[in-house]
Nucleic acid binder design. Structure first.
Lengths: 338, 338
DNA sequence: TTGTAAGCGTTATCAA
DNA sequence: TTGATAACGCTTACAA
């Protein structure tokens, strides 16, 4: 079933069928209807590969996701959801590439084989080899998160530094003088993970600015690590009365550790963070947090990417999201010292 | 950058380059190395669209997912993860199509435009229009879940009827005589949702077989519905001492309702279900449940699909998973009547 | 208003 | 061992 067959059965040339479909040339109403009838009868749809070959574009976007072996965080899931929806709204298709490190086969296939018109990258390192590869190929791309030198690229990101600063401000305003930062893991930090670095910096700045004591601890992205991490803080730094965190995956463990230590939240201990709304609401009690607008961010990334594809010479676009902190029930005044 | 350019620079014909790459014809070691050097230098990769056009296959699978507007359940997420990983292992690409209902634009693009060599469908209805469309197109597909008449098709599924039966058995063995089934929503049931139907049937069978009282209630896929649903059961049927459920998304609400009713689990109330392991372990106390092996199921679906693509005449494959019930801490002997 | 034909980048057949 | 060439299905410039 191809365009030639449709042409034959409608008694016209292939170009007329093509033009009837695209509307790029006027076709008499009579023949247009005849062609349409044949198309409907046979259920014809143009072959995407042939069209891509001829037009030099695939009408497809690529989304590079972290390998799903290790469960994605709620915010990551919402990035994906936002990208999926926005791509669909733009009538484009979406190719998924699970690629953690560089030189991933699937990444190379998609990107080198020109299977997509542009790529959305998430989980960006401060120095990211995939970014450099894409720049070398001159393939349009947008990052969710940003490198250390994001000039000249299109990206969306959350201002982790500012948000962690606001968490510290909020806690300090409530009288807390000893605050711990539960960051992402030390490995991630060492590998140049942007949010981990920027949270660390924002925390250090805020702590000096407010003249309070800060402890920063790394924590892997899982429940057990969260529990162990908080236990560690409580025993090594018993003076700490509040936590600020960007580690979504650890939150259930954090909660568990606080519960088993018998520390009532927010009566005896406070916690504030940066996380997807869903996670904040699942926390017990509900978590005071800056809600990462991840669905919006995914959709915005798609918008930016479409713009880079259709107008390669337009200046790059960027958006740094700074969502407000939603006051919920996990923060309260510092308890009177015993 | 195309094969002609590589040929020119290597001083050979395009066919020689093609054969050097595919190995389908012997090429002298000397020229092979010369060609490879040029390829490496220029970073050439064959254009996927041209290859797809010529070969008549895309090396791409399609995965039709429920629109992510409404958060996917843990089991659905694990299906996707399993499919993503297995597709990657098979060196194939994966095109994502968010399509709930029929006549979805993205579904039609992927399937009608022959963008994929085969399709994996999830959230199957007992009578599913997408399945019929795929059969009409003679496009290979595999379903996660199955229709009312799954003969002649390849599928993987979980035996919800049997598993809910086992939950009832387990609860009845513990002395419970009044058991409620928290099913998926009435709308889903009405629309012919397989698991909802099969859970309902399995529950009805088991309840008669064991001579206990059964109450079946529909419940939407969210926390609030779960809470309301359990409150309804407790007030309308105060004699109920145990719940069996397949509704993952409602579980946090179920837990909340039980807690606020002051019903200790498993001391005063028991609950068993069918859900992803992750969800079972998140429940408090950890949930006695048949753990849906969703990652395996996704991977198996990919295996079946690849087989249907490469050997269209081989008999269809199917696998009905019946995972054992993992005894955790949410079920106990029926409490003595007050 | 419509038709003819070139060309997109591959692979594979037929010749040499 | 290698090269020339047709063909995959489409879009579009050029003719009529």
């Amino acid at each position: 079933m191809n365009i030639g067959e449709i042409a034959r059965r409608s008694g016209v040339s292939r170009s007329t069928v093509s033009y009837a479909l695209s509307g790029k040339r006027s076709v008499s109403e009579a023949t247009r209807q005849r062609i349409q009838a044949v198309i409907d009868e046979l259920g014809y749809r143009p072959n995407a590969a042939a069209r891509a070959l001829k037009e030099g574009r695939t009408r497809t976007l690529g989304l590079v996701v972290p390998p799903p072996r290790r469960r994605l965080t709620p915010a990551q899931l919402e990035f994906v959801a936002g990208v999926v929806e926005a791509t669909d709204r733009a009538d484009l298709d979406l190719l998924l590439s699970p690629s953690g490190d560089d030189h991933d086969r699937s990444f190379e296939r998609i990107v080198g084989g020109r299977r997509v018109d542009g790529v959305i990258l998430m989980e960006i390192r401060l120095d990211d080899t995939r970014v450099r590869r894409l720049q070398g190929l001159r393939l349009p791309f947008v990052t969710i998160g940003r490198t250390a030198r994001p000039q000249g690229m299109s990206w969306v990101d959350v201002d982790y530094a500012a948000l962690i600063g606001r968490c510290v401000d909020h806690l300090a305003d409530l009288g807390h003088r000893h605050i711990a930062l539960v960051n992402r893991s030390a490995e991630l930090l060492a590998s140049g993970h942007g949010p981990a670095h920027r949270a660390k910096e924002g925390f250090a700045d805020a702590v000096t600015r407010r003249g309070v004591e800060g402890v920063e601890v790394g924590c892997a992205d899982d429940v057990a690590a969260g529990e162990a991490c908080v236990q560690g803080i409580l025993s090594a730094h018993p003076e700490v009365t509040a936590i600020a965190t960007i580690n979504e995956a650890a939150l259930p463990g954090v909660q568990r550790a606080l519960e088993s230590a018998g520390l009532d939240v927010p009566g005896r201990f406070s916690i504030a963070g940066v996380t997807a709304r869903h996670r904040a609401e699942q926390f017990h009690p509900q978590l005071t947090a800056a809600d990462v607008p991840a669905v919006d961010m995914g959709a915005t990334a798609v918008d930016f990417l479409v713009e880079r594809i259709t107008e390669p010479d337009a200046p790059p676009r960027r958006h740094l999201f700074v969502p407000p902190i939603s006051l919920r029930n996990s923060t309260g005044p510092v308890p009177a010292p015993r």
